[in-house]
Design a binder for these strands. Structure first.
Lengths: 215, 215
DNA sequence: TTTTGTGAATCGATTCACAGCG
DNA sequence: CGCTGTGAATCGATTCACAAAA
């Protein structure tokens, strides 16, 4: 029955933020299929999780449903969007327009309200090209473009050896969060958020368990 | 002094496996630079972690160092490689040779002992091509090729709508672990391991914290 | 000294279990 | 009834803190 733009007393745990992102996607899908209300155990089924987990997560963002009808899907989507940065536009910069960088641009498309506003690459011949709706600039232009486009999130898709230097540049240019695809742990000032997508680690984990189960 | 190759009493936590993968990379780098011994606090520094965490992780795999000299790097690399599937060859299949699939092949290269032994795609015109050392087959060939190549790990890089069907096929073909890049949660038999790389979720997390810090 | 190895304490995240409600 | 909301219990992961070793 509630919950629009509130000030949240507590800091929301990272894992919860992640699940909210997932719930939101699943809920939008349900809306598309004509559903209007959903029970915690149904959403849990879609998310391959538990009803208790779902209820706890929604409690954390202060959203309530009714015992009779469950949760109103559209309202819940709005509430989650208000918590995630989804109701304001977030401008993002990509650094590193190699195989992975281009795949990232293609993957994210340019769905509002997360917009890839600029890409940077050391190789000067990439400057000026437009890939999946995102313009490439030479690395030197970073500070200027980032300020002009009001970018606060950086995505790092450069080789390991360059990642720390790129992170330093991005931080200097004012980013508050980094999504790092390079297989390195970045050293950043306290408080700045870094999400690592470590593909080597991910594959090692799978190989470990596959091997364990197989033998 | 340490770590004889076998029989780990306890099951090793997922997070620990992930960190071991990271430690291994960092240690190999140190070997390349000429280091032979390392202290827990030094490795922690490289991993952007804590000395206690490092010691706990190494304890978990039964590896010991000496208070005087720290840990012997080469031996530690070997011990970690023995724990991860790194000392035997693991064959992997990729399904979905789009932008993301090709970037994945390029990223992983074909470093031993994790080998991309086959790629599959619904689009028949991709069959027969060799990308980054990995041969593409039509989707229909999956069962045959997977058996012939003894593949036990699958990497899913297809659109969300197809991911569950692909997972089912791969499981039928005998995989024991899945690395899933599709923005869906897969339903799999108990015991089978799934590692999700959810890029939407990753970006939402960063955007959330960037926004929180910025405002 | 300095550093390892580790039991115990702490912290955080998930699950249980049940009161309250429609 | 079956469902939500939530305090309390549990589970797991990290950190503390210190004895033992060199």
């Amino acid at each position: 029955m509630n919950s629009l733009p509130r000030t949240f007393p507590a800091r929301i745990p990272v894992n919860t933020i992640g699940r909210l992102s997932l719930y939101r996607r699943l809920l939008l899908e349900q809306l598309g299929v004509g559903a209007r209300q959903i029970y915690s155990h149904q959403l849990a089924g879609l998310a391959v999780s538990t009803a208790a987990q779902v209820r706890r997560d929604l409690m954390t963002i202060g959203f309530s449903g009714s015992p009779r009808k469950g949760y109103a899907i559209q309202e819940l989507v709005d509430a989650i969007s208000a918590v995630l940065a989804r109701s304001v536009e977030t401008s993002v910069a990509l650094v590193g327009v190699g195989n992975l960088g281009r795949a990232i641009l293609a993957y994210y498309g340019n769905r509002q309200p997360i917009r890839f506003a600029a890409a940077f690459d050391r190789a000067p011949e990439k400057a000026g090209r437009i890939l999946h709706g995102c313009r490439c600039y030479p690395a030197e232009a970073m500070a200027d473009v980032m300020a002009r486009e009001n970018i606060h999130v950086g995505v790092i898709a450069v080789p390991a050896a360059e990642a720390q230097a790129v992170a330093d540049q991005l931080i200097l240019a004012g980013v508050k969060g980094l999504l790092n695809f390079a297989p390195v742990r970045l050293r950043v000032p306290a408080g700045l958020y870094v999400e690592n997508v470590d593909l080597m680690m991910a594959l090692d984990k799978v190989a470990y368990y596959a091997h364990e189960l197989h033998s």
